[in-house]
């Protein structure tokens, strides 16, 4: 490779630097606005009267603002969005609790305790990561059906208390990086393994627990397939499924539909606002995706 000139010159005029900086920001702002547009459209459509959602010319700001869309959606006959909101919260919270408890415990078992067959079982766990749900869901459905649990949240929640491969793997890696001195000291003091896990180790891995909780909550909130398969009474639907049912039956009530979509999204925004750091870290460190 030939060197034509000295490329590492820092004596460029500050004006061109400023232009470059402005250009960078223009690119960033342009792309960001494009990305946020559907978002903006959802929210302003939720505040428009029905006939104004598709208006010509395009209405960029709702006028008048119609807050009633939300009030009406809350108690819509047959589609009680407030009830859906509660169902989603209840469902996502329980799955999160189950996942965090089980995956932390199992991950700790694999990372810190020695027992015959450990490596073999851990290999099975890693292999499990690659098995898509499509080869297991029919027999699991039939199993819950034979137990008479269709139409309830039990099939959707119960499995989470038995762990999942991905988070067990993540927790194991996390526990492995923890120093063993603390646990050993507690062991010498006569603490049993369960006390060590609960009192000594869990507080140490708190960030990992939060990452796990935040993503499990988000995924469960997003889940559509599970509720679609297992639930049949409309009043027991979570938000995603309720919104879907509303769209299918009330095909022209666009304002209310957008209010429902906004309501389905808003709680996750609040969660994100408070736990932003854990979302971003979770994605970067483990490759977790939404």
């Amino acid at each position: 490779m030939q060197i034509n000139e000295v490329p590492y010159s820092d004596n460029s005029p500050s004006l061109s630097k400023q232009i470059a900086s402005v250009a960078r920001h223009l690119i960033l702002i342009g792309v960001t606005l494009l990305f946020l547009l559907p978002f903006y459209w959802m929210i302003i459509s939720a505040l428009k009267p029905n006939e104004m959602v598709f208006s010509d010319p395009v209405q960029w700001f709702p006028n008048p603002i119609r807050w009633e869309n939300f009030a009406e959606a809350f108690n819509y006959p047959g589609f009680p969005f407030l009830r859906f909101l509660w169902n989603s919260t209840f469902y996502s919270t329980l799955v999160t609790v189950g996942t965090v408890i089980s995956c932390a415990a199992v991950g700790y078992g694999f990372a810190s305790l020695r027992f015959p067959g450990r490596n073999f079982l851990f290999t099975l766990t890693v292999a499990n990561l690659m098995i898509p749900g499509v080869v297991t869901f029919i027999p699991i459905f039939l199993l819950f059906k034979s137990l008479g649990m269709l139409g309830s949240y039990t099939p959707l929640i119960l499995p989470s208390f038995f762990g999942n491969a991905f988070f067990i793997f993540m927790m194991r890696q996390f526990f492995l990086t923890m120093p063993s001195e603390l646990a050993d000291a507690a062991r010498v003091d006569g603490a049993n393994e369960f006390v060590i896990f609960w009192r000594v180790m869990l507080p140490l891995v708190q960030p990992a627990l939060i990452v796990m909780a935040v993503f499990t909550f988000l995924w469960t909130w997003h889940d559509f397939f599970g509720p679609l398969v297992y639930l049949n009474d409309q009043s027991s639907y979570p938000l995603s499924l309720g919104l879907f049912a509303f769209r299918n039956r009330r095909t022209t009530e666009w304002g209310l539909l957008m209010a429902g979509a906004t309501l389905t999204t808003l709680p996750l925004m609040v969660l994100f606002f408070f736990a932003q750091r854990y979302f971003i870290e979770g994605i970067k460190v483990t490759g977790l995706k939404v």
Partner: peptide
């Protein structure tokens, strides 16, 4: 940029 990923697929 990450915000749209939070929106549930149905919504």
């Amino acid at each position: 940029f990450y915000l749209p990923s939070l929106v549930p697929p149905v919504a």
